[in-house]
Write a protein that binds this DNA or RNA. Structure first.
Lengths: 208, 208
DNA sequence: AAGAAAGATTGCGCATTGAGCAAGTTTATT
DNA sequence: AATAAACTTGCTCAATGCGCAATCTTTCTT
């Protein structure tokens, strides 16, 4: 089933990563607006054309790591028991994902990501990356719901969860007190009680 | 304070709208992928260059109406009393916005919007339009919160609320049973109780 | 191990597009 | 009516996404 990736696949992943990292580095060094596809390709020792074979735009290259994380999260969701409550499924998946080696990321990566935040036009591309799996996540969630309006409810669950994950992560990047895992947990707890004003304080207090 | 817009401003708004509508119509007619800036400009009787003066891409033109709605919603949020509970502020603003003449939209518009849904790449641009005001909404919300973690909480509130609004609206477009207002109300109620499994059924039942 | 088949990289060319600039046109001001 | 301010347009260019065909690499077959 899970055959070890051959040399071909490994090489591909390597250049993909190289392109992603080159993009991130150059964007942080020279500013996101002076980032050109040609430069990224050069930095990764491939041709401009090859870049296009991997990514359809420099922004996609920039947020490739988010895409990977999100695809991985979808897998984790799939692996949760079918009878678990939906929000629990999502929370646990998010926690596993965060725990999986990305809890204490490389400081250089952190700094670069913080640089990127400055450029407001990039936010749009990041949310785009998230929106890519929104539907997949919803269809994964739907069979776990019972009652009326399953479709609407699954889509709202997926969308709000992903938004929360994105915002909590971003907030932690800009403002890293404590662990990322803690930030994600706090965010999810907050989102879980969006509509109940009294519980906010309690929810936050409970996170410490 | 609010001077009536002169001829100049009215003309500008007119061409902006013309461009938006031309884009929407052409996208629905010929498919979103065969949509070219030149064609949009022609259909609106302006030059290609002028199109660029109004919109920075065809997708921005396509989702101009969302942008307008969202800016309007920000105003409505600003006008809510300062002591209202945050989620109530958002719900009321959304309801007002929906009630403001867009509750029973033009069937042609609806059909076109439904066509657009087919093209998956466009979702990214729609969420981009929503993300544009995410920060503004958060900074508007922040002063209405008390306690700890005001920044994180306001950002999560803004993000989840906007996601919900987007998904509920989109769901209603694809699936218009009842009024849009009803769909938005239901969506917000659902989002308000994301984490509490037992309350889902009650929340939905309460919407009928 | 040799050769065929499948897959990846590259260069070339073209269509689309976003934007700066300057000249011409329309609206606002006085 | 004259002047100023704002808008439109055509021209031009750099950047980009992608189809195509040639070449090189990995994998599969026998």
């Amino acid at each position: 089933m899970a055959e070890p990736p051959g040399l071909r696949a490994r090489k591909k992943e390597a250049t993909r990563l190289a392109l992603h990292e080159a993009a991130l580095r150059l964007a942080a060094e020279q500013g996101a607006d002076r980032l050109h596809v040609e430069a990224i390709a050069d930095a990764a020792n491939v041709s401009r054309r090859t870049f296009s074979n991997y990514f359809s735009s420099k922004e996609e290259a920039l947020f490739y790591d988010d895409a990977v994380r999100l695809r991985r999260m979808l897998e984790l969701v799939r692996d949760r028991p079918a009878d678990e409550a939906p929000w629990t499924v999502l929370s646990r998946a998010a926690e596993q994902l965060t725990a999986e080696g990305l809890d204490e990321p490389d400081p250089a990566w952190l700094a670069r990501r913080r640089q990127l935040r400055a450029h407001p036009g990039l936010l749009a591309h990041q949310v785009a990356a998230y929106s890519t799996i929104e539907r997949d996540l919803a269809t994964e969630l739907a069979p776990r719901l019972t009652g009326a309006d399953v479709e609407l409810r699954s889509r709202i669950l997926a969308a709000t969860f992903l938004s929360t994950l994105r915002v909590a992560t971003q907030h932690w990047i800009e403002n890293p007190r404590g662990s990322l895992l803690g930030a994600v947990r706090a965010g999810l707890r907050l989102a879980a009680s969006n509509g109940t004003p009294g519980s906010w304080v309690r929810a936050v207090a409970g996170s410490s």
